[in-house]
C-alpha cells in the first residue's frame, strides 16, 4: 500500500466517474426535475452499450454509433413514458417493466447478425477498433487520447445544452411539471407529454453513457446495467450534499452531479486501495448511499433543534 499507487489509480476513477456522470445527469432529470424515480436506467444503460457495440463491430464509426445509442435510449424512455402516462402504471413500476423487457431486447440487439439471434456479450477490443472514442487503455497516458479530456469536453457541452434546453419556454414547462403538477396543468402545460419527454431525454443520456462505457471497458454485456440506478442516485446525492450550498445555478447543479459520480468512484478506489475485501463492496456502496441520503435529513433536524420548539422539516 503506497501513495503513488493511489495517485496512479486516480485517472481511472476520474474517467469512469465522468462516464457515469452523464448517466447520473440523466437520473437527475427524472429524480430531481420530474420528481419520479425511474428504474428504466438499468436496462437502457445496457441498451446503449448493446447498440453501440453492435454498430461498431459492423463497421459504423464510433461517433455515429454512440449517437444512435442515444436515439435508442430515447425510445426506451418513450416506452416507460407511455406505460406510465398512457396506461396509468405507476412510474416506478413502469420503469421496472421496461427494464425487464429491455433485457430480452438487449440480447436480441447484441445477437443481430449471429445465427443464434441472441448474444450475451459483445467484445469491442481496442486492438481492433482503434478509433473508439474512449478506452481504458489510454487512461494512464498523458496524451490527447486520454479519455478524460474527451469526457470533460462531452460533459461541459452536455451541461451547456441541458442548461439551454431547460431555460427555454418548453424546458421551463417541464420543470413546472416536476415541481407542481396541478399548477402546471392549470397553466395549460400537458403534464403527460412533459413526463414522456423528460423520461426520453433522461434515458437517452443514460444510453449515451452506456455506449461510452462499452467502448471504455472494451465490451458490452447484457448485465452491464445491473445496479446502475444505485450509482446514478449516489452521484446525484453526493453532488447535492457536498456542493448544494455552493452551487445554486442550474448548470452548476448538473456539474455537481458529474462531480458526485467522480467522487463516488474516488471513494471506491480509495477503499479498494486501503485493502477492503471486494466481497464487501456492495455493502459499502449501500452504506455510502444511505449515509449521503440521510445527511440532509439530519441537518434539518439539527437546524430545527436550534430553533426552540421548532419542528423538523421533513
Amino acid at each position: 500500500m503506497n501513495i503513488t499507487q493511489l495517485l496512479n489509480q486516480l485517472p481511472g476513477a476520474a474517467a469512469q466517474g465522468l462516464i457515469w456522470g452523464i448517466m447520473a445527469i440523466g437520473v437527475y432529470i427524472t429524480f430531481r426535475i420530474l420528481d419520479t424515480a425511474d428504474l428504466t436506467v438499468d436496462g437502457s444503460f445496457a441498451t446503449g452499450g448493446a447498440v453501440a457495440a453492435i454498430l461498431i463491430t459492423s463497421g459504423v464509426h464510433p461517433l455515429l454509433a454512440t449517437a444512435i445509442a442515444f436515439l435508442a435510449g430515447l425510445l426506451a424512455g418513450l416506452i416507460t413514458g407511455v406505460l406510465h402516462t398512457g396506461m396509468g402504471i405507476p412510474a416506478i413500476l413502469a420503469g421496472i417493466l421496461t427494464q425487464l423487457a429491455l433485457y430480452s431486447i438487449n440480447l436480441r440487439i447484441q445477437g443481430l447478425g449471429t445465427d443464434l439471434g441472441s448474444r450475451a456479450n459483445v467484445p469491442l477490443s481496442i486492438n481492433k477498433y482503434k478509433n473508439m472514442l474512449v478506452s481504458l487503455r489510454n487512461v494512464g497516458s498523458f496524451s490527447i487520447e486520454n479519455p478524460i479530456w474527451l469526457m470533460l469536453l462531452i460533459t461541459v457541452v452536455l451541461i451547456g445544452i441541458m442548461y439551454w434546453f431547460f431555460g427555454t419556454e418548453y424546458g421551463c414547462g417541464l420543470r413546472a411539471v416536476g415541481s407542481n403538477q396541478q399548477m402546471a396543468r392549470a397553466q395549460g402545460i400537458s403534464t403527460g407529454r412533459g413526463k414522456i419527454v423528460g423520461l426520453m431525454i433522461s434515458n437517452g443520456l443514460v444510453a449515451f453513457s452506456g455506449a461510452l462505457m462499452a467502448q471504455y471497458q472494451g465490451f458490452s454485456d447484457v448485465s452491464m446495467g445491473r445496479g446502475a440506478i444505485v450509482i446514478g442516485l449516489a452521484a446525484v446525492i453526493i453532488g447535492e450534499v457536498i456542493f448544494g450550498k455552493l452551487f445554486r445555478n442550474f448548470a452548476l447543479k448538473l456539474l455537481a452531479v458529474s462531480l458526485g459520480a467522480i467522487i463516488y468512484y474516488l471513494v471506491i478506489q480509495v477503499v479498494l486501495w486501503l485493502g477492503l475485501n471486494t466481497d464487501d463492496l456492495k455493502l459499502l456502496t449501500a452504506l455510502v448511499v444511505a449515509l449521503f441520503l440521510a445527511m440532509p435529513y439530519w441537518k434539518s433536524h439539527m437546524a430545527a433543534r436550534r430553533m426552540k420548539g421548532g419542528k423538523p422539516v421533513v
Binding site: Q16, Y216, Q217, R226, G227, I231
Partner: peptide
Amino acid sequence: EENASGEVPNCATIASQLVAKQ
C-alpha cells in the same frame, strides 16, 4: 486479489487499478 462481485462495471474499475499498480 480482487473480486468484481458479479458486477460488470467493477471489472473496469479493478482492471484500471491493477494496471495503475503496475
